[in-house]
Amino acid sequence: MNARNIVAKKEFNWKSFFLQWEWLLVCIFILINVINTSLSPYYLDPKRLLDATMTFLDKAFIVFPMVFILILGDIDISVSSTVALSAVVMAVSYNSGVPMEIAMVICLLVGTICGLINGLLIVKFKELSAVIVTLSTMIIYRGIAYIILEDQASGKFPAWYKFLGWGYVGGVPFILIAFAIFAAIFGLLLHKTTFGRRAYAMGNNITASRFSGIQVDKIKVIIFTLAGTMSAVTALFLTSRMGSTRPNVASGYELDVIAMAVLGGISTSGGKGRMLGAIISVFLIGLLRYGLGLKNIPAQVLLIIIGLLLIFAVMIPNLKFNIGKTRKAQ
């Protein structure tokens, strides 16, 4: 038998390069900016635009792990409750005399534990879907937040804590810098490491992944734990921006976060999508909200727009447009 030569170099193809989901996002992004500019002369002011990012980036930290979770083909709707619980625990422990630095560590710890519990439950009870597990823990985590703080607010944080949500480093909002750093970390983790490759494999075919020696349970637990940790990071920034916290904070965040990831081209059936798309759609939805705010359009309209965007983002590629075919991970 004659051995044939198999090419190991990827050919560059202009057509498939431009048929990527991300270009569609870029087009929508530009469109939103054009509309916003024509609606409000103040919109394009660089200083204001930079400040605008501070208003929507808090929840964006959860988008990164949510991308991983969706790539696994799972979903986590308990993240908003994790935000609330970790914020409440932080505020309460600070107000009972714990130094702020330690309280912040406690916040991260609480979030991580919440995520770990989700992950362990999902792995140990495979009969239960991630939907039902995170649905129950969503009620429980927020329930615990209510037990701790009842209907009170807790705040009076030290002045320096405000820096997280309101501070600047060299004229750039600190939260934007933090977002960029996490974006780089999670982007590299997803696309350039064995961890990311294994996550993609699991999302595409979990059985084949198991037979290939991937420790699927371990990876799943790590990813759900990361979601908890990043929810706590969101809690840190959100509480800093608001100055105090309540048990009902961040409700509905899970929807925003899932919408951002799905709009970014992450398939809900697992295995497909890239971090870049999710990052673009964070800004796309954020700036849309900001622009509508400038024109005093009520927040309810935004609710409706995000809801519709979420459905269309899933529907359009499924309608078998050409563009859908390029939504594969490389």
Binding site: A8, T194, N204, A208, S209, S212, G271
Partner: peptide, 20 residues
């Protein structure tokens, strides 16, 4: 079902078990 990630290239499939 158990051997391949059908939507992947054959290269990535082959190296999957030994990716580490």
């Amino acid at each position: 079902k158990q051997g391949l990630v059908l939507e992947w290239g054959i290269g990535k499939n082959i190296t999957l078990p030994a990716i580490g």
